[in-house]
Design a protein around this nucleic acid. Structure first.
Lengths: 325, 325
DNA sequence: CAATTTATGTCAACCGGTTAACATATGTGG
DNA sequence: CCACATATGTTAACCGGTTGACATAAATTG
């Protein structure tokens, strides 16, 4: 690997001059600039970003902690984040916490040791205090941590409300909501709040199916839904916290001989790509994932640049009516 | 951020001693070690990995270039790779090339500037020469580049063969294969080779649907399949190069009133999680993605450590019979 | 008691850049 | 012709670690 010294030697100029060319500062003559570029090209030189990072105390790396990129929602999110971050000169280190708090803690330490400029936390299984301790820029995805830590979310309450209202409007008489662990205090739990509020207000019987920690235990979803139907065969409206769960629900219904949407109406959440890929297409509550992802990156940038950023960032959701409700 | 000097001062020892403790080399007394650890703890010190990387000329970062992590196959792969890499002390920088060759080239340059220890290329849209030029460790996923560059793949020919043979065994009389661009010379194209070989050998009429570059243009899949059926309504066996395509195929069949598997048999590829999530579950050819991912990382490690590594790494596939064929 | 081994320190160089300070030389405009 | 802008070089410090060379002293061993 050639260094800046090799370039300087080859171009017949000083290291300082090469650095000046590289960083466009101070005076540089056109002829010299050309000589330097030529030398760089001939040597196939590229500046060592590790050295630069060290000096600048800025790595231009963003850490991203998700439960797992294998989950379509986080996969799509990671894709958006990486793409936008890259366009802004940032690279992304991904971490799969598996929603395991010791792993999450380790990842946070690792990211700190590696001098990332900021962390986007889409997995947060630690105590609030742990996050407050971090002196580096943090943006929380879908969770309120403290008044100091900006977060990005979408209107979960409204999403839950829209979903349940649609189910009721379509004539469902017994409804159920399947969601992740309600213990992890994520803003997504507001969907359940809305679900209960509306159901109670309308005096409709409702049930809750809470999964445990694991995010992508698909078989588990099926089991739980099976259980639900065997205990409560009258359920004719299902609201699920992800489109993956909704697909699982469709399968369970099909196995039980229940037609969707005739016998059971199903509403998913997120609007990931498979939602519109399966048949019937899934009626779902769309989160503006692309905007949320970009906003997360912009917030990190803002924090890095010590600009004022808004702490609460809640984007609107949209009910997408398709085939299952 | 405290530095090693702060720790030394606080512990009342020299920087060298702290470094010795940190790296476990030379003689260190138990008492001193404790003092140093205590100081580190009190200061919440973590060594700056950027500085270490610079000195060691080793970043412990692996670059991973995929078409997009939003695609379930690459999402799952990324997840496996990250998890395994992390267990081996490596971090992963993900890059979404979108199968755009100029982006891919840019990413390669970026990764080089950032001194990654190696690159796992699961997107390769560049000329072979470009990859040969890279002096850093590269492992190709599903592509043969040169005798010098190790690659990881699964038995694509066998996979194609198994799929087609099953279709024929089940009585299909007219079959079609949908695959990505056959121009990108990926090993996955051997599936199509097998498809044609078997079809010709058995003298069964067959059709090919080739998508263009884009990986996740789901709507496009549907259109192409629609076209196929309108031109060739007799097609009763579909082999698709991914489970996503298979899901799209199921939808198209359902729209056209064709029952799966009664009227049309469908076989997907990869066995990503949604394959067993939809209903009916998709019959598919399973690639051992976890092993392939781990192997990719081990190969990078081997190259980094200048150990001899095997260049050809082809793992077996498995036909998973489920509901669609 | 001498020879080792163990424990720690000092110093300086190095990794590959960036940058400030200062010197010097040429060109240019008033 | 002088003042100033432009162009480049030299030197050294710095970012935060690591490491080798060498010195010194105490503890251990034979």
């Amino acid at each position: 690997m050639p260094t800046i010294k090799d370039v300087a030697k080859r171009a017949g100029v000083s290291v300082t001059t090469v650095s000046r060319v590289l960083n466009n500062r101070g005076y540089i003559g056109e002829a010299t600039r050309k000589k330097v570029y030529k030398a760089m090209e001939e040597l196939d030189y590229q500046p060592n970003e590790v050295a630069r990072s060290l000096f600048r105390k800025k790595s231009n790396i963003i850490g991203l902690i998700v439960p797992t990129v294998a989950h379509p929602f986080f996969g799509e999110m990671t894709s958006y984040i990486e793409t936008y971050a890259y366009s802004r000169g940032y690279k992304v280190l991904v971490c799969n916490s598996q929603l395991d708090s010791s792993k999450e803690q380790e990842y946070i330490w690792m990211l700190r040791r590696n001098q990332v400029d900021g962390i986007i936390m889409a997995s947060h299984t630690l105590d609030v205090e742990e996050y407050k301790k971090l002196e580096l820029p943090v943006v929380a995805f879908d969770r309120f941590i403290s008044k100091k830590i900006p977060y990005v979310t979408s209107d979960n309450y409204q999403g839950g409300k829209l979903a349940v209202e649609l189910l009721l409007e379509l004539g469902c008489t017994t409804i159920a909501h399947m969601c992740g662990s309600l213990n992890l205090d994520m803003l997504a739990n507001q969907r359940h709040r809305a679900f209960m509020d509306v159901a109670e207000e309308r005096k409709v019987p409702y049930f809750t199916v809470e999964t445990d920690i694991n995010v992508f235990e698909v078989k588990k979803y099926e089991e739980l839904l099976h259980d639900l139907f065997s205990r409560q065969p009258d359920v004719d409206g299902l609201f699920l916290n992800s489109d993956i769960m909704a697909v699982a629900a469709m399968k369970v219904c099909s196995k039980l001989g229940k037609r969707v949407p005739e016998d059971v109406k199903i509403i998913g959440y997120d609007d990931v790509s498979i939602a519109s890929l399966v048949s019937p297409e899934i009626t779902t509550v769309r989160q503006p994932l692309e905007q949320m992802s970009e906003l997360s990156v912009r917030l990190i940038e803002g924090l890095v640049d010590k600009k004022p950023v808004s702490v609460e960032n809640c984007l609107p959701v949209e009910l997408i009516r398709r085939g299952t409700a």
